[in-house]
Design a binder for these strands. Structure first.
Lengths: 146, 146
DNA sequence: ATTACTGTAACAGAATTTATTACAGATTAG
DNA sequence: CTAATCTGTAATAAATTCTGTTACAGTAAT
């Protein structure tokens, strides 16, 4: 007997950080203005503090500048055609695309070796994605907007 | 003032399903035998019921055969050089590599359009990963084991 | 001074992922 | 035909991860 689990995929590999970061950077690229976290949050439809968390990371990675105090906000640190989507991905993501490893049994021949081989594969997978994202600039992405 | 968050990345994009599935298939490819979920679980170091959940999905996707009852277990449904890592990825993963979308404000010009453009990009990213994984067979992966 | 911002901590709540237990049904061996 | 051993899957608990919220100190402009 074999019946399908009602929902094929039990698990997902999901978060919202890349979409949020790209939304922020798109707004900054299009308006070419200093935007406040509240204003950006209104467009993304999330909390301003969440936006500030993303801004903080993008700032550490040199993609944006921020200015504190009245009239402050965020702006691009460099032209949109110098920002690669791989830069954004690298800023918001640490994990491997293919996910996590198990902690297999070292007494078993397969278990003993597999994590080494998986990591090698995970690196290749990450590299393929990053290479693809490296061919697209923020400016390219923004061109889609009317 | 700008201090780093102690842990750069707040979020991760992680699960263990791909590693588990590939571990299972590697064992089946190497032993060329009918293996029980308990035996496999001992190598991965997880619960047999978890293994059976993975087996169930791999079976639906035609990568393995299973046999119930005493002496039952799982075996490859086709030669290891006919199983692509992209097949395995497709079986265990539904989500987009770049994660989820927000629910942005439709009153905003950027918010109104961005999900369409993001989805297009997400597709390209998924495609790049799947293309890479399509160049590697289970047999290739197993060759790394001594 | 007042106002309007950022930066970040602290924590709460939601969602997702993993683990566990249990048991009906299948199949084989004796 | 009975016992033993296995799958399939449900139900649910536990753990982890992700998102949202509140609060407030510090900064800067007016």
């Amino acid at each position: 007997m074999l019946l399908l689990y009602c929902n094929k995929n039990m698990y997902s590999m999901n978060n919202i950080q890349f979409a949020t970061a790209l939304h922020i950077l798109t707004m900054l690229a299009i308006t070419k203005d200093n935007l406040s976290s509240s204003y950006i949050a209104g467009s993304i439809n999330i909390n301003p503090a969440m936006v500030r968390k993303s801004l903080s990371i993008l700032s550490v990675y040199g993609l944006i500048d921020t200015k504190e105090g009245k009239g402050g906000g965020a702006s691009l640190a460099k032209p949109a055609d110098k920002i690669l989507l791989s830069d954004i991905y690298g800023a918001v993501n640490d994990a491997n695309v293919l996910g996590k490893l198990n902690s297999p049994n070292p007494e078993c021949n397969t278990g003993k070796q597999i994590n080494r081989h998986l990591l090698e594969l995970f690196d290749q997978a990450d590299h393929a994605l990053i290479t693809k994202l490296g061919t697209i600039t923020l400016a390219d992405f923004c061109q889609k907007f009317k």
